[in-house]
Amino acid sequence: MTDTTRESGGRNKSASRAGTFELKSRRFSLLGLVLHSADMAELSADWARRAGAGGFEHEPVVIDLSQVPRAPAAAAAEPVEGQAPLALDGPAPVDLKAIVELLRASQLQPVAVAGATPEELALAHELGLADAAEEPAAERAVPATPAETVREVVREITVETIVEKPVPVAAPAPTLIVDKPLRSGQQVYAKGGDLVVLAVVSHGAEVIADGSIHIYAPLRGKAIAGARGDTSARIYTRSLEAELLAIAGIYRTAENPLPADVAGKPAQVYLQGEKLLLQPLS
């Protein structure tokens, strides 16, 4: 995504370039939704439980169907040798329309499918999704041996995960600086970088950063650092009174009172393994 902005910025400046556009090959890193189940009811329940809270900002997503257990339909249960069993009357296609709706409702922007059967691909084109044929699609479309197909039926892993592929851009994201108080109901998200807040973060306000969070005032609301899984992110504040502290998904709420040596005092919060440590700052 960073590439796109840079590219358009550059284009504006160089008037000498011939033509109004260029078609170039580009590589982007995208979120991939790897499905392990085709059961929509099960999937949407699990989605609501694990990702329903949102926090997405219309990021593009590739729906990866390559891991979906493919139960062969009755007609194709005994694939005849030399026949392409999945071409037409293959397994029941994944309900792409429902998945697209699910993702859009969570502020994600599905852009393509990967590892789809021809039937699913046709459906994807209808829905305006592209084919992200990363690996040779044939590898999965035709199971190597019938025996393997049977194993797929038995498999009952119904976990769906969001896998983030490594971001190749090395340039550090800019720090977001907020100098006004963050009041109840307000939310600030420093995407890709650190967040610095110079005024109070009130009860009911939320500060979120992909990097660390520095608050030079009392922190009374919720602070979520390392929102995309950076376990080295930390939270610093002049006065720790937070309702919720989270780093890379490990969190602690105010239900469990803050220890006396940090409550209402300057402190830092960081992760050690799976444990959130609260340390006073002198």
Binding site: P181, R183, S184, G185, S202, H203, A205
Partner: peptide
């Protein structure tokens, strides 16, 4: 608390 919310909306 509600005043805090309103102050946020004012800004």
């Amino acid at each position: 608390r509600d005043s805090d919310r309103i102050l946020g909306m004012l800004s």
